[in-house]
Amino acid sequence: MPLTVPKQIRLARRLLDQHYATPITIEALGSQVALSPYYLIRAFKHIYKQTPHQYLIGRRIAKAKELLRNTQISVTEICAAVGFESLGSFSTLFRKATGLSPRAYRASSLPAASPTYIPLCVCFLHGIQDLPDF
């Protein structure tokens, strides 16, 4: 693997972090970091243990969780604000990711501390080094 790839992969992730609320295709992302879609997916997954699409969905769900916990914005508005086009797919993906529907999640949550604290012993045990740019 060429030495320049990790930098490009980090850039791809940064672009997903910055533009998660807008439609992003793998072709467009690959073009911005000068990698083919196939190579980008493979290298991204190798480094971050998930595909760019999975990362994007996770990023959107993370932002949705934050908005559900810390604001009174409606679920429909949150769905659109984080980049989902369909309330149905948002609810399905949210439930799959968290175990709860968006409304149940809001009802079961206290406002979140920011930034999230994760004990160092857990980071050490699970090899967590590369924290997301939230």
Binding site: Y48, K49, Q50, G58, A62, K65, R69, T98, Y105, S108, S109, L110, A112, A113, T116, Y117, I118, V122, C123, H126, I128, D130, L131, P132, F134
Partner: peptide, 13 residues
């Protein structure tokens, strides 16, 4: 109630 819920790679805290 939920206190923290965040993904770090594929690890969910």
């Amino acid at each position: 109630t939920i206190r923290a819920d965040a993904l770090f790679g594929d690890y969910r805290w």
